[in-house]
Amino acid sequence: MLAFSLSALAQEKIPVTESDYSNNSVEMADKMREDGKIYVLVGVIAIIFVGITVYLIGTDRKISKLEKTISPK
């Protein structure tokens, strides 16, 4: 009985077709693909900037530590 009902459910499935991939009527998370993918570029540049900044902060802190070991107050 269970096996029968499962196979019955399988019969009711709607197949995924090519049009499900190509339609524009369904809203998807497409923001990053809009406007010539400019947001991707903004993301790339922002990541690089944040990376350099983190590195600079790290260097800043290392020197702060060195300064403290040299002249402890």
């Binding site: 400019i38 570029l41 903004v42 540049i45 922002a46 900037f49 944040v50 900044t53 902060i57």
Partner: peptide, 18 residues
């Protein structure tokens, strides 16, 4: 002023590009 620099530059990159 370092925090200010990071903030202003993030604004520059994002607003400047968009």
């Amino acid at each position: 002023w370092k925090i200010l620099a990071i903030g202003l530059l993030l604004y520059t990159i994002i607003a400047g590009l968009l």
